[in-house]
Computed example of a mutant assay.
Amino acid sequence: MKNNHAKVRAHDAIVGVLYLISAGLTLYTQNLNFLWIAVAVGGLQILSPLTKFCPVYFVLNKMMPDTEPLQDGK
């Protein structure tokens, strides 16, 4: 597992930002439909261990080819 710490931290940061964007847009616009962003991200996080696929890791695996692939569906 070489250099995967940066990939895991990037994943956590991206997911955290998506949650904050969802909450912020909901509070700012008072439109509860923005909570669906958080629901979708949470659903993907729940399904990720079962399917062994994560869209964020898919992109990060392409952007960081010198690291070991994580959650690549294998």
Rank of each mutant, 00 (worst) to 15 (best):
F34H: 06
F34S: 08
F34V: 11
L35A: 13
L35P: 02
L35S: 11
L35Y: 01
W36E: 12
W36D: 12
W36P: 04
W36L: 13
W36F: 11
W36N: 10
W36Y: 10
I37K: 00
I37M: 04
I37Q: 03
A38C: 07
A38D: 06
A38F: 01
A38T: 06
A38K: 03
A38Q: 03
V39K: 02
V39D: 04
A40Q: 01
A40G: 08
A40H: 00
A40N: 02
V41F: 04
V41Q: 01
V41R: 01
G42L: 08
G42Y: 00
G42D: 02
G42M: 06
G42C: 08
G43I: 01
G43S: 03
L44R: 01
L44V: 06
L44Q: 05
L44P: 00
L44C: 05
L44D: 06
Q45Y: 01
Q45I: 01
Q45M: 09
Q45K: 09
Q45F: 00
Q45R: 10
I46P: 00
I46Q: 05
I46N: 04
I46S: 06
I46C: 07
L47W: 02
L47Q: 03
L47P: 00
L47N: 02
L47T: 03
L47R: 05
L47K: 04
S48D: 09
S48F: 00
S48N: 11
S48P: 00
S48Y: 00
S48I: 02
P49I: 04
P49L: 05
P49H: 05
P49R: 03
L50R: 10
L50V: 09
L50K: 10
L50A: 11
L50E: 03
T51L: 09
T51V: 11
T51S: 12
K52W: 00
K52N: 13
K52T: 06
F53K: 13
F53H: 09
F53W: 07
F53P: 01
F53L: 14
F53Y: 09
C54E: 11
C54L: 07
C54T: 07
C54A: 09
P55S: 11
P55Y: 09
P55C: 08
V56C: 08
V56N: 07
V56R: 03
Y57H: 13
Y57V: 09
Y57T: 09
Y57S: 12
Y57Q: 07
Y57G: 07
Y57K: 08
F58N: 13
F58Q: 12
V59Q: 11
V59Y: 08
V59T: 14
V59P: 07
V59E: 11
L60A: 13
L60P: 08
L60G: 13
L60I: 14
L60C: 14
L60K: 10
N61R: 10
N61Q: 15
N61D: 15
N61E: 15
N61V: 14
K62T: 13
K62R: 15
K62V: 14
K62L: 15
M63R: 14
M63I: 15
M63C: 15
M63S: 14
M63F: 10
M63K: 15
